[in-house]
Design a protein around this nucleic acid. Structure first.
Lengths: 208, 208, 208, 208
DNA sequence: TATGAATGAGGGTTCATTCAT
DNA sequence: TATGAATGAACCCTCATTCAT
């Protein structure tokens, strides 16, 4: 599903466990220190390996970053996009998307997703293009949904691009301030954001 | 107004021209390449100086970053916060804040503000704390405004923190997608975002 | 015995050969050019390595200096102090100390010991303190010996501190003028200095 | 008397006061931090000038160092060597030399003299040679005195070179441990060292 | 699969020195 | 006499990466 360059084609039998462990650990470290400030030494130390040891599993730091992002994208598409793309009602679809996205970001794989947002500029060439293409696909999906909502008479006159990016901004900013285990549960946050966005998008009762 | 460590205390008369030029150029470069990927060589070359020549005016790369951020914060507080803090009506105040913030980000000093958002993690210690304190002050200002709105009966039951950070997310994401000179003018963007946010915050006519 | 931070903790089996080679070469270079005038490039070139190659084995230039000094101190304590500290007779002990010190400085490890004398100011903080503590221990040992000599009625009335530092000065100055292979052998030099010091310290025959 | 390159030929009327002030301050700083670790910025700051301001009075850092050393040598030769060179009795001459040297080092100009001892290696070429020549002249003077002492039947059989360098070592080491205002006055120190050296050099009463 | 050793490139920073003003 | 600005060279150190073992 990733479609891109695997971190390394596995020769004979290779435990994909190590792969996953490396991705996870590197994601955590890139997320904590930032891709550029994090050294391969940081990663290898966190893994209990030497630098050379890590290089047996990856081809380069950049490909490692790409693999993390691709994995995050896989996850997002699998757990959110494909789950909601079957929903007919655009309002329900939008709500489910927002909810799924928020929960993914707050509960499941915050590290990988955060890296995707922050470090896209660290990629170059094909890698960058591939990630951006998948991001754009998501935006188009959102815009389409907003358009359907308008066509169905449920939405005020709202620019689909502005609405989509406003929604993305709201969600992508979460990691900057939200800490799980605090006053709001992840579900409450998702609902609150959905209300905020939708009450503004939908016509008020009197206008309807 | 910055309150922090100027890049260099000026003895007697010193043309602040070079200082401003350096801040501006460095802001552009840090913004384009990212703070860590940008080298002091990049900055000095862009200025037509040698590296040592730049170091005649700054103390370190980190202080240069801090100076850029502090300048961006000065600008924001001067052009937005102080302008709107006198407005009595919380609805008007919020609308003016959002509008001012969006226009600042899109028209006036996008580079400095963008750097503030992206590179705070590159700062350490006191510098980081000072910038964060000013950010927090802004959030408190927003939360207070949302609370006043609710107290005045104009707002739906909305968590002030969620609303504040949603608003910030929307605005801070702009630089990722909006390009001036396109389909939407800066004013149109500001209005569209204000509508989006406020129609969700305000009670609908029927409920009122 | 060093008790201090080794240049690098060795995991499992590591040839200490390179370590020793680096210490020796760096000691020679620091001694010849002076610590500050010697660059890490000088050291690495002399080793037939790149700078980065040297940094694989050491942590910093300062720690390298400390390691050299600590090694010199180890040597001194092992080859001189512990050898003589068992000698009961203070006169014999003093003569043996002076002799051992002179021979160490002229024959065995002149570089490391010279560096200790010259470059202590290049160290800071803990490192400096550790080296100074070991130096002070030696001085206390000398003072104690001079006091015993006086108590035993063998010495004229001589300030133990002055005598100790005079002796140290005589020995530490050697590297400034003495060249092995010249008119005086190392042993002759040691004996000459011992005579010079002791004939002044001991009562003359008539007074005895 | 210096005979060497003046720090700068004075055009028209120039206060030599500044010159002296610069030499003194630089000597203090070079002494405290070491020549290599001290920057011209340190010197200029201590003088209340800019770096460029200092360069109006000196030609280079190395020449500044040379000027300090030459001044120290002038002082030593004027206050010690010429004072004692008229003394006929070699014993008196030696005692006066040692005493004068110790007092110069502890009371009058410790900084300049210390710099001479420590930083000769920082000089190159002609400068270095000139300073070394003056040092050697002093050594020859000492050796001659020791030889006269022996010829007069007052001294034991002692190598004049060893005795000279032992004496120099004792004196030159003083700055490493002696602090004025402590238990020993400068005069007491001078006497103690003279006793130490001479009682060893002179024949004991019984042998005489 | 993993490691210690090594490297080439570059990064931030300092410094002695010069020069127009 | 003094300065602010600027420079070229060097310095210490880090890093992603490779390779023999």
């Amino acid at each position: 599903m990733t479609g891109g360059a695997r971190v390394r084609r596995r020769t004979r039998k290779e435990r994909p466990a190590r792969q996953a462990q490396i991705l996870e650990t590197a994601a955590r470290i890139f997320c904590e220190k930032g891709f550029d400030r994090a050294s391969m030494g940081d990663v290898s130390t966190a893994l209990g390996l030497t630098k050379a040891g890590v290089y047996h599993h990856i081809r380069s730091k950049e490909e490692l970053l790409y693999a993390i992002m691709a994995y995050g994208m896989d996850l997002f598409e699998e757990k959110v996009l494909t789950q909601v793309s079957g929903i007919e009602d655009p309002l329900e679809r939008l709500r489910a998307t927002l909810r799924g996205h928020v929960l993914l970001v707050t509960r499941d794989r915050p590290k990988e997703i955060t890296v995707i947002l922050h470090e896209s500029n660290a990629l170059k060439g094909r890698f960058r293009e591939r990630i951006n293409a998948r991001k754009r696909r998501y935006v188009r999906f959102l815009e389409k949904t907003f358009r359907e909502l308008a066509r169905g008479g449920l939405a005020r006159k709202v620019d689909p691009a502005v609405a989509s990016f406003a929604m993305l901004g709201m969600i992508n900013w979460i990691y900057q301030w939200y800490r799980p285990g605090g006053r709001l549960s992840e579900e409450q946050l998702a609902d609150a954001l959905a209300d905020l966005l939708l009450q503004g998008v939908l016509k008020g009762p009197a206008e309807a």
